[in-house]
Computed example of a mutant assay.
Amino acid sequence: MSFRRLVRGSADWPALERVGRELADRYDRDCVRIEFLDADNWLSTPMVLDDDRFVKVITPQNTLVHTLFTTGRNLGAFSAGSEGFFERHETPYEMARHELEATRQVRDLGVNAPEPIEALAVGDLGVVVAEYLPEFCTLDELDADSCRALAPALFDALATIHDAGLAHGDLRAENVLVLDGELYVIDATNVSDDGRTDARSYDLASALAALEPLVGATSAVDAALTSYDSDALLAARRFLDFVAIRPDHDFDAAKLRGEIEKRAAGPPDADGG
């Protein structure tokens, strides 16, 4: 077994068969067809059930990896001058239940997200079931012009989540799906109540970081300013270095920081000062 597979904790075939049988019974189907998705996912085994339901199977090893990621992210938050605001899960079922509830909260706000169906435990596995969105692409699969046109909608959705007192906690291009010209937000992580102010600044930094390599720093900041003021961008600025060290973000932090600072300074005086 490769090291990457060991760390990811992929569920073995007998366990996945048990999940398939359980879902067939729950949905009153004689049998089900399972298609595994080719996804670089460290925290679950994603699959599609009968072309109409998206399923994530979470193992105890996935929960352990999530705990390690959470520790690392909190250390990164400390480096940005913040208390750690990421929270871990105790069990695979707790992870599944959190994702279901987070998705439900987002949809209740009017933000597009796949319809949550249920979370359940199958043995020591956690299973979350949601609507399957066919024919979607992720934000980073769009061409620059299409991405630039949708960028304000991303910050509008994020502001809606933030105005409700919530935070996403893991915003990146792979967690923004595009279907029929509409954005869908997925995979919110667990953020503490006490740390949500900093978490919202981190979200904004993450959204800017996701967009910068796709549309450039100027267009990313332009889009952010349709929903946030310059003070919010300045608060997000201190998290850019933290976001930059994450392996799932690759962007020019210096360009973003410079663009934010330029906008915060405002236009030059009429006399050139």
Rank of each mutant, 00 (worst) to 15 (best):
E35V: 15
A113S: 13
A80F: 08
A113E: 05
V57Q: 02
G9I: 00
T45N: 14
N175I: 11
L139H: 01
S206K: 03
F136D: 15
A207G: 12
V185L: 11
E94L: 06
L208F: 05
E259M: 12
A164W: 14
D140N: 14
E101S: 13
A236Q: 14
A199H: 00
T218S: 15
F54H: 01
A39N: 13
P267S: 06
G181I: 15
Q105F: 09
V243C: 14
A223L: 06
A102S: 10
N190Q: 04
A11C: 01
S206Y: 10
D124P: 07
F54I: 01
F54G: 05
H168D: 10
V176F: 05
R88E: 00
A223D: 12
V221R: 12
L68Q: 06
L139C: 04
E17A: 05
L142S: 07
L256W: 04
G20E: 00
A244W: 10
L240S: 07
L23P: 08
R257A: 09
R104T: 15
T138F: 06
A220P: 00
D40S: 11
D198V: 00
L139S: 04
T226G: 00
A39D: 05
V55Y: 03
H89M: 07
V57D: 04
L49A: 12
S206I: 07
A265W: 00
P60Y: 14
P213Y: 01
L208R: 06
A270I: 12
Y93A: 03
T67Y: 01
A77L: 13
V32G: 13
D51H: 12
E83T: 08
R4F: 02
T197W: 15
V122K: 02
E115S: 03
D25T: 00
A144F: 04
R26Q: 14
E118Y: 02
D30N: 12
H249Y: 10
V7Y: 07
E135Q: 05
Y93I: 00
R33M: 09
S79M: 09
R238Q: 03
E17R: 07
A159C: 15
D124V: 10
L211P: 01
I245C: 07
A210N: 10
H249K: 03
A159T: 11
Y27W: 12
K255I: 11
Y184A: 15
E35Y: 09
G76Q: 06
F69K: 03
L166Y: 10
G273F: 00
D269C: 06
Y132F: 10
L171Q: 04
G81M: 14
I260T: 11
I245N: 02
P114T: 06
V65K: 08
G126Y: 07
W13Y: 12
V106N: 05
R148S: 12
A144V: 12
F69R: 09
V221D: 10
F3Q: 14
V48M: 06
G266K: 08
D194G: 12
V128E: 01
